[in-house]
Computed example of a mutant assay.
Amino acid sequence: MISVLLADDENLIRSALAAMLSLEDDLDVVAEASRGDDAVAKALAFRPDVAVLDLQMPELDGVEVAARLAKELPSCRCIIVTSHARPGYLKRALSVGAKGFLPKTATGSTLAEVIRKVVDGGRYVDPDLAAEAISAGDSPLTPREADVLEAAADGAAIEEVARRVSLAAGTTRNYLSSAIAKLGAGNRYEATQLARQFGWI
């Protein structure tokens, strides 16, 4: 029997996934979580074979949960499901060791097959998402530029952004200017939107 943890902040979707997976003879949903930090705690408590993680959750996102579990519970394979299939997210997920990445439009039987595949040591990436990731290319931003741009996403003043990223205001302004120029944006709001569209922040 394969034990599964489901983590999704949308109760209806999580309940539907649990109901679909319960129809499979070899799958057992042992725990559910609605937040990323709770997903980590429940994974460590129940030690499931597989964690099916929503990409966007409160506290920690699915990729952050996968990264934590790779360190703290390496026996648990992580699968990311998302309705925000942006290329950068796929690359981030794979870089932290996620074994599966598929859209929420996938069928229950597809998810069940992916769970079995990753437990057997395989990997699954939705073909359409993989093609999009390849065509989008790599982020032009350095990790520090991406951090600063993300910290500035809510429109905070430069001094506040600088405090968030532990840099001087002038250095922060330079990183923002560089990120805006690299993305061909008119301002930081546009740069943030573009970077998010490609999943680079």
Rank of each mutant, 00 (worst) to 15 (best):
G108Q: 10
L55G: 06
V165D: 03
V161K: 02
A131D: 05
L55N: 06
K42P: 00
E59G: 00
Q193L: 14
V81S: 03
R173T: 01
G97T: 01
R163I: 06
N187L: 04
A16L: 13
G36D: 03
G88R: 12
K71R: 15
K91H: 09
P74F: 01
A33H: 01
A98E: 05
S166K: 10
R116Q: 11
A85Q: 08
P58C: 11
L21A: 11
N174G: 14
E59L: 07
N11H: 08
A151N: 05
G184T: 11
L73H: 08
I115N: 00
D138W: 01
D25S: 14
L17E: 05
A156T: 11
R123C: 10
Q197C: 02
P74S: 06
D26C: 08
Q56M: 12
K91G: 00
D9K: 01
A19T: 15
G186K: 14
D154W: 02
L5T: 06
D25I: 00
E113H: 04
I13N: 02
R68N: 14
A31F: 03
G97E: 02
E72G: 00
N187I: 07
A33T: 04
L69P: 04
C78Y: 05
G88F: 13
L183N: 06
T192V: 15
V125S: 04
L27F: 04
K42I: 00
A93S: 13
G121C: 03
S3Y: 05
A191L: 09
V148E: 03
G62H: 07
E72K: 10
L69H: 06
Y175K: 03
N11G: 13
E72R: 11
E10G: 00
V4P: 02
I80R: 11
D128A: 15
S3A: 03
N174S: 15
D54E: 11
A7T: 13
I115G: 00
V52Q: 04
S83H: 04
Q197F: 06
S95P: 03
L141D: 07
G108P: 12
G170M: 14
L73P: 07
W200M: 07
E190Y: 01
A185F: 10
L17T: 03
R68Y: 06
A146M: 03
E32I: 07
S135C: 07
V81L: 13
A67Q: 15
V96M: 02
L167R: 05
A146E: 05
A152E: 09
K99R: 15
L194H: 05
L21P: 13
